[in-house]
Design a binder for these strands. Structure first.
Length: 878
RNA sequence: GGGCGUAUAGCUCAGCUGGUAGAGCAUCUGCCUUACAAGCAGGGGGUCAUAGGUUCGAGUCCUAUUGCGCCCACCA
């Protein structure tokens, strides 16, 4: 046969890059134009253009590629849309940082200058990212690559904004929002991360104007006291009942404020009295609204003190706090300082402390939009894998608050709202209007703010496919099949895509969401910049190859669980690839010597049928596992089958046939080797795309590329003559050979005669003589029906269908053999006892399903046979 | 304060609808047997966190407890 040639040494660097280039050039990643095929669409969770890919991306992309390649091979019209996200705040922070190093500020450049810089940044990092995704072997359609700020996608953003505004879902209003003093922008609730902080609870005495009574308040924020406009107590609190409605004097400020009653106050907490600072605390803000309290802001935009109290002007919160405490202490009104631990909000991008702030912002009213999105998951239109993330999702969606979508940033989609300088009317329009929609004045100006980066991400599954235009792609590929992402962005992204998809396209954006965990370092810690424990996937690829990286991120992983980076697993992956490489070398070498492949089942030997059967089962299970997103299990099965069954047994069994040119089944062996190896490679291809392609194309009769070959299919009708027997009998032979190797003192140089006592396996053993002798170190083989003429000093192997004796002169001591048999007997007894117990248990007999009872009976009988044979043997030795 | 995850061999982890505990690495013993020493053939090693319960039968289902981790929540 004509076959290709493999390099002698396996080295992934020899071919990975070239193969990818070839795939891309040939257009294999593009879906076919045949619209009668069923589409299978995945849109990539677009990596942020803030930097390069990390292990989390490698994991995410690997799983997507597994599915996309698998589905493509299964005959679906696979489309994987790649792209990147402008990541508004994250990118802007990075750019500003970099500018700072150069001594430039945003203001120096102005909006336009800054945006120019940002686009340059995008060009650089966006390019890097797509290069890296290619390195990972991802089969995405690069001709459809998208960026969240592309023209089409920006149009989608404006359209959605306008629609939601017209429907009344988007409004502008003055609310208490979260403000990041470092990024100078508002944040949504989801963008706040909470951290525990050790601080104090300061107890401060506020006294009556005439000093006749006083109230002690407890606070963690003494520096905000200048903005206090009341003290609140619980209406039922006996301690303070008489004081409600009276006033106290704010120390330092010497200003009278009222004592009010409000149920939100916890009697047990602190002193039971709380200072109310409506401008700087969400609770206080609400209380302020309820009681019509004035709102007094004490900070400027950067959260330094304003000029409310001149001597504090310009101080940051820390020093202001120090000074206030100091001053209060001097005034003798600081009653107590208590240690206290509480959580403080931080910005998810710059990690500085965030502050509540009253500000005019744009919001999306969420409650109604969330409802159908909740329903879609409840009724299974969108399925989460694993299911448990339903709860996280429901919890968030059912308690959802309005979404603050405006950001005081420059990098992003500018809000399509225009203010009239003459009549103050707001005109919202996806295309920039030239005059006010109410008074017609041409003196209008656009809102300075941009949108939350997640506003555009929420549209990603359909904006990438051309929506709002009814493009061919949108009509055919939408809704997408499966979203694969980390569980850490359920709120940010998944939830928002679901409600957006339903609202704007009338359909859920995807049917399945596969959640994976986080990649941790070898000690189980989160990889992070500050710890410096991040691992660069490209470095791993450089050292072990892409296939190995993908393997290590897949094997033994279950959906939704975090995984630990492990060098060992990478080595295991390399070993596996090397193993396949070598096995393939062997197969190719031998196929070269063969004239033709003989696929006639009548020429198949027992081991041929055995391996084809095993293959068939493996294919069936692997397909099932992949369909259920159990990639780790699927890969394990491919690994086990390829290494243990195919390489360790089948190839070894084949050798005598291959080496004997006269063997009538030699060509059949060639066929089976080619078939099984080919199917192993195909099964493995979605997981390890490169090595499988490199080998596959060398096999005789292979397709142009493994990528477009058919994924192996289980043949329900696979039923060779004597098929069941073949499987069973080969199993027996394997057990026999294992036992010999295990217990007998035989070597290639120390062979012995083999006497098989069996009737049912005569044919199989005769046919298998060649490899039995080789693998079991037999000199010659005799098969007989009974135990005549078996020498005393023979070792034996007993299975349920056969007994095997190997007579030795001096190799095995009779007493040693007796002891070995005794051990063997004990083990069988132990095994048998389990089934004896089951079958003698009236409960089991009465209630267990019949199949289980029969199974137990069969096993019991099998062990009984083995036991008898071993006892016979021991008796014979006496 | 709620919710979730996790606890299985020395290490890292699998184990689907309950039916004699698995893998990789590590360890020990033999082997350079013409595909492979990144390998081959074998061995040792687990009362599946603890306590109850359901069941003929539980690593697998239920309840409680403990350890570790995560998420959510406006107690100053």
């Amino acid at each position: 046969m004509k076959t290709g040639k493999l390099e002698d040494k396996f080295n992934p660097k020899d071919f990975e890059n070239d193969l990818y280039k070839n795939w891309e050039e040939k257009g294999y990643f593009k879906p076919s134009n045949d619209k009668t095929k069923i589409p299978y669409t995945i849109v990539i969770p677009p990596p942020n253009i803030t930097g390069k890919l990390h292990m989390g991306h490698a994991l995410d992309e690997t799983y997507q590629d597994i599915l996309i390649r698998y589905k493509r091979m299964c005959g679906f019209n696979s489309l994987w849309v790649p792209g990147t996200d402008h990541a508004a705040i994250a990118t802007e922070v990075k750019i500003v940082e970099k500018m700072k190093e150069e001594g430039i500020s945003k203001e120096d450049l102005g909006r336009e200058g800054f945006l120019k810089r940002a686009w340059e940044w995008k060009k650089e990092y966006g390019g890097t990212i797509s290069k890296q995704i290619r390195k990972l072997g991802c089969s995405c359609d690069w001709s459809r690559e998208r960026f969240t700020m592309d023209e089409g996608l920006s149009n989608a953003v404006n359209t959605v904004f306008e629609n939601l505004y017209n429907k009344g879902y988007i409004y502008r209003g003055k609310r208490m929002i979260t403000w990041c003093p470092s990024c100078h922008t508002s944040l949504s609730d989801a963008e706040v991360e909470y951290e525990d902080e050790d601080t104090h609870l300061w107890h401060i005495r506020y006294s009556a104007p005439d000093g006749s009574y006083s109230v002690v308040v407890a606070t963690t924020r003494p520096e905000t006291m200048f903005g206090d406009t009341a003290v609140a107590v619980h209406p039922d609190d006996e301690r303070y009942k008489g004081l409600i409605g009276k006033t106290v004097v704010l120390p330092i400020m010497n200003k009278e404020i009222p004592i009010i009653a409000d149920e939100f106050v916890e009697k047990e907490f602190g002193t039971g009295a709380v200072k109310i600072t409506p401008a700087h605390d969400p609770n206080d803000y609400e209380a302020g609204l309820r009681h019509n309290l004035p709102i007094i802001d004490v900070f400027d935009e950067e959260y330094n003190m304003n000029d409310l109290v001149p001597e504090y002007k310009g101080m940051d919160t820390i020093s202001a706090r120090k000074k206030v405490v100091d001053q209060l202490s001097k005034l003798g009104v600081l009653v107590k300082i208590e240690d206290y631990k509480h959580s403080v909000g931080t910005c998810y991008r710059c990690h500085s402390k965030v502050e509540p702030k009253i500000s005019e912002q744009w919001f999306v009213r969420m409650k109604e939009l969330a409802e159908p999105a909740i329903k879609a998951v409840k009724n299974g239109e969108v399925k989460f894998i694993p299911e448990r993330f339903d709860k996280t999702y429901f919890n968030w969606m059912e308690n959802i608050k309005d979404w603050c979508i405006s950001r005081q940033l420059w990098w992003g989609h500018r809000i399509p709202a225009y203010y009239c300088d003459d009549c103050n009317e707001i005109t919202v329009s996806k295309v920039a209007p030239d005059r006010c929609s109410r008074c017609g004045s041409s003196h209008i100006h656009q809102d300075e703010d941009t949108l939350d980066t997640w506003f555009s991400s929420a549209l990603w599954p359909f904006s990438t496919l051309g929506w709002p235009e009814q493009t061919e792609d949108f009509k055919y590929f939408y809704p997408t099949a499966t979203l694969i992402t980390g569980y850490d962005i359920i709120f940010f992204w998944v939830a928002r895509m679901i409600f957006s998809g339903i609202e704007h396209t009338g359909e859920v954006p995807f049917k399945n969401v596969l959640f994976h965990g986080i990649v941790r370092d070898s000690q189980g810690r989160k990889m992070s910049k500050s710890l410096g424990n991040g691992i660069d996937p490209l470095e791993v690829i450089d050292k072990y190859g892409t296939d190995a990286l993908r393997f290590s991120l897949t094997l033994g992983i279950s959906p939704g669980n975090d995984i630990r980076y492990s060098e060992e697993k990478l080595e295991a992956a390399g070993n596996f690839a090397n193993k396949i490489w070598n096995a393939s070398k062997f197969v190719l070498m031998n196929l070269e010597q063969i004239d033709e492949l003989d696929s006639n089942p009548e020429h198949f030997t027992y081991e041929d049928k055995w391996i084809l059967n095993k293959l068939n089962n493996t294919v069936k299970e692997v397909r099932n596992n992949i369909e259920n997103f159990d990639f780790g299990v699927a890969l394990q099965k491919i690994y086990d089958f390829t290494w243990d069954e195919f390489c360790d047994w089948y190839i070894e069994m084949c050798k005598p046939r291959l080496y004997n040119k006269e063997d009538a089944t030699r060509n059949a062996a060639g066929y089976v080797l080619n078939k099984v190896l080919g199917d192993c490679l195909k099964m493995l291809h979605p997981f390890m795309p490169f090595v499988t392609e490199q080998i596959y194309t060398k096999l005789p009769g292979s397709d142009e590329t493994i990528m477009l070959s058919d994924y192996p299919e289980a043949d329900e009708n696979i039923c060779f003559d004597r098929e069941e027997d073949a499987v069973e009998q080969i199993k027996e032979i394997i057990v026999g050979i294992r036992n010999i190797r295990n217990n007998m003192n035989v070597h290639p140089s120390r062979k012995a005669k083999m006497i098989f006592v069996t009737t049912s396996m005569k044919e199989a053993i005769t046919e298998s003589e060649g490899y039995i002798k080789k693998l079991g170190f037999g000199e010659e083989i005799h098969i007989q029906a009974n135990k005549e003429e078996i020498p005393q000093n023979a070792v034996s192997v007993v299975t349920s269908k056969m007994e095997l004796y190997m007579p030795f002169e001096d190799l095995v001591d009779l007493e040693e053999e007796r002891q070995r048999l005794e051990k063997e007997k004990e083990k069988i007894l132990k095994d048998k006892a389990i089934f004896d117990g089951m079958l003698s248990n009236p409960g089991f007999m009465a209630k267990a399903p019949e199949a289980k009872i029969n199974e137990a009976k069969e096993k019991q009988a099998k062990f009984a046979e083995m036991l008898k044979a071993i006892e016979d043997r021991m008796n014979g030795m006496k």
